[in-house]
Amino acid sequence: MSVDRAIVAKIAALARIRMDEAAFERMVPELNQILEWVEQLAEVDVTGIEPMSAVIPQPLRLRDDVIDADPLTGGGVRDAVLANAPAAEHGFFGVPKVIE
């Protein structure tokens, strides 16, 4: 499967990366080169093989339902949450107005 400009434009839109003409000119052949190379995977017979679901064979650990048990993963840290915001007002993050 090879990608053309239209497909790359669609992917770039999905990935929210603005691209100009020069970027398309560079990127389309590069992506095709990489995709052509990874497609050798289709040669591998994977009949009856499950996709890997966990790198380490252990089930998921579950956490107790306790609020703010660890300050690093708890709430009540609004200042820390907003500290790096490009636009923060009245305790909110600000973004360009969204019309729904």
């Binding site: 499967m1 999905l14 990935a15 990489i34 990874v38 591998v44 994977v46 499950e50 996709p51 890997m52």
Partner: peptide
């Protein structure tokens, strides 16, 4: 972009699932 493409509708099994099976191997 590559990652977005291999996960996108229609390509997921051919790329991502296949790669994860190869990873098992």
């Amino acid at each position: 972009l590559i990652g977005t493409y291999v996960l996108s509708a229609g390509y997921y099994d051919a790329y991502y699932t296949q790669a994860m099976k190869v990873r098992t191997l």
